[in-house]
């Protein structure tokens, strides 16, 4: 019996979302990034199109976060003490986008709180240091995020930043700031299909156009719940392709953040010998978490280590270009 390759027929597609605005578009970016548009499951080009490759955002911070792994400091060197230098290094490492993290009291180590004025200043400086599209994430404390991101939205009006993270407890303020100043939001929910949809609906109901919403279903790292995130993303993407409009947003996930907070990545001594070399383990953890989530539909992966960026960039290129798949 001759083989006919089965093709799934889909009625829907993921929306296209563009991050960053050039001078002509009201911003100052030299490039913009468009993600989404898929009418197939990831990289299965025989049954649909994937007009834009998944993109890599590199996470930098307004100052060196005290709770980050020393391996990351080692990898980036002195650049981590200066967000301008760090942004340039991130761009040179192959980033498609920059994610600027505003540190909170815990990450600052000294208990100090970032102020809106400081946030404006560092965002302005990073926008000056790189022409890549920018995402700005707050410290992850709802009240503080609101205060900082509203100021950032105003300072960078027209740049089509991604403001994050936008959760059910603070979405109103951040969505309003995004609407007022021409930005996008990262809509984050804790690993659940219905919660993900619900926050998209709420965000739309406030009035933000759908082409300015990234869906962030959140994930666990390898060994810490990746299978939940993986399956939630797979279900969301299948729903999108099957025409469920409220799931048709490009997906952003943060394997760097998840991977690098683990003991596997943070600690080099006093761990089981079977865990192997510390640096290899930590980079492998970030890479495998990211590559696995690319298979379940990630459109943007946020990474931290330069070696992970190099590997994932190369993997994406080969997944996107079947013709260039070298057979050894």
């Amino acid at each position: 019996m001759p083989v006919t390759i089965p093709k799934n027929k889909y009625s829907g597609a993921v929306r296209e979302v563009t991050i960053g605005a050039t001078k002509a578009e009201g911003g100052t970016r030299t490039t913009t990034v468009t993600v989404g548009g898929e009418s197939t499951l990831p990289f299965l080009f025989h049954e649909g199109a994937m007009p834009h490759p998944p993109r890599i955002a590199v996470e930098i911070a307004d100052r060196w976060p005290a709770d980050w792994s020393p391996l990351l400091r080692e990898a980036w060197g002195d650049a981590v003490d200066d967000p301008v230098a760090w942004a340039k290094a991130a761009e040179a490492s192959g980033a498609d986008l920059i994610l600027l993290r505003l540190t909170g009291p815990v990450q600052r180590g000294d208990g100090s709180k970032p102020t809106a004025a400081e946030a404006r200043k560092v965002v302005r400086a990073v926008l000056g240091a790189t022409g890549l599209p920018l995402m700005v994430f707050g410290p992850g404390i709802a009240d503080l995020d609101n205060e900082l991101l509203v100021a950032v939205a105003e300072e960078a009006a027209g740049e089509r930043l991604v403001l994050g993270v936008c959760e059910d407890k603070n979405y109103r303020t951040i969505v309003a700031a995004a609407m007022a100043h021409g930005h996008l939001v990262d809509s984050r929910t804790p690993m659940d299909v219905n919660l993900a949809k619900q926050l998209i609906i709420l965000t739309r109901d406030v009035g933000l156009p759908m082409d300015r919403i990234l869906m962030d279903p959140s994930t666990g790292a390898l060994g810490y719940g990746i299978e939940y995130g993986y399956s939630v993303m797979e279900r969301l993407r299948l729903a999108a392709l099957n025409g469920d409009s409220m799931t048709q947003q490009p997906m952003l996930v943060t394997p760097g953040e998840e991977g690098w907070k683990l003991k596997e990545s943070k600690v080099g001594e006093g761990v089981p010998a079977s865990w192997g070399n510390w640096n290899e383990r930590a980079v492998t953890w970030e890479v495998l978490t990211s590559s696995t989530l690319l298979q379940s539909g990630a459109d943007i992966v946020v990474l931290r280590h330069p070696d992970s960026i190099t590997e994932i960039k190369s993997v994406i290129q080969r997944l996107m270009a079947p013709a260039h798949n070298g057979h050894s």
């Binding site: 390898l222 060994g223 990746i226 299978e227 993986y230 399956s231 596997e264 010998a273 079977s274 865990w275 192997g276 070399n277 290899e280 383990r281 492998t284 953890w285 495998l288 696995t292």
Partner: peptide, 19 residues
């Protein structure tokens, strides 16, 4: 390598966990 074995074995255990 030990590090890569650890990572791949955990990935396999995760993907094959009964949801």
């Amino acid at each position: 390598t030990e590090a890569s074995a650890y990572a791949l074995l955990v990935l396999r255990a995760n993907i094959y966990t009964d949801p």
